[in-house]
Design a protein around this nucleic acid. Structure first.
Length: 140
DNA sequence: GCCAACGTTGGC
DNA sequence: GCCAACGTTGGC
């Protein structure tokens, strides 16, 4: 089996927060209606890890989730054209990493979170993952 | 509250 | 097929 890939998923805490993710344990990551983001959902493999980012409010990476079910039809989509995955809470990021921090960290230059602010699902390179994990005091 | 980025829609 | 108008997301 190949090495797990890394991702970042966004949620507005008003709609669905990290606390809810932790309470639910496993949650269907639904509602993605953007082709680029959907393509990333389809590329996710069981066991991949993703940062959980709070957009709008907080604007910080607060936790890590694991993909436990690969892309399947999004039950919240009437057209049947969009997919979702199931993710499971792994652990919180001890020191949430804010967007401001990410922007000022030279090692994170070019990260999609900053470059494409509207994208809600994106890949994170191994190098960037390691930098963010270190900033957040996340040991896995 | 404003604005930039970007996707979608519809007229031509 | 082009492009203006409009809606949504998300940062500031």
């Amino acid at each position: 089996m190949s090495k797990p890939a890394h991702w970042l998923v966004k949620s507005e805490p008003d709609a669905f927060s990290w606390d809810q993710q932790v309470k639910h344990g496993t949650e269907a990551w639904t509602g993605v209606r953007n082709h680029q983001a959907a393509a990333f959902l389809k590329a996710m493999k069981k066991g991949d890890l993703a940062f959980f980012y709070h957009s709008n409010e907080g604007k910080e990476i607060v936790g890590v989730v694991r993909v436990v079910r690969e892309a399947y039809q999004d039950p919240t989509d009437d057209t049947g054209r969009w997919v979702c995955v199931d993710v499971q809470a792994v652990s919180p990021v001890p020191k949430p990493v804010t967007l401001a921090t990410i922007k000022t960290e030279p090692k994170l230059e070019g990260i999609a979170l900053v470059r494409q602010s509207r994208l809600s699902v994106m890949p994170i390179s191994d190098a960037h993952w390691a930098v963010i994990a270190k900033l957040g005091g996340w040991k896995g």
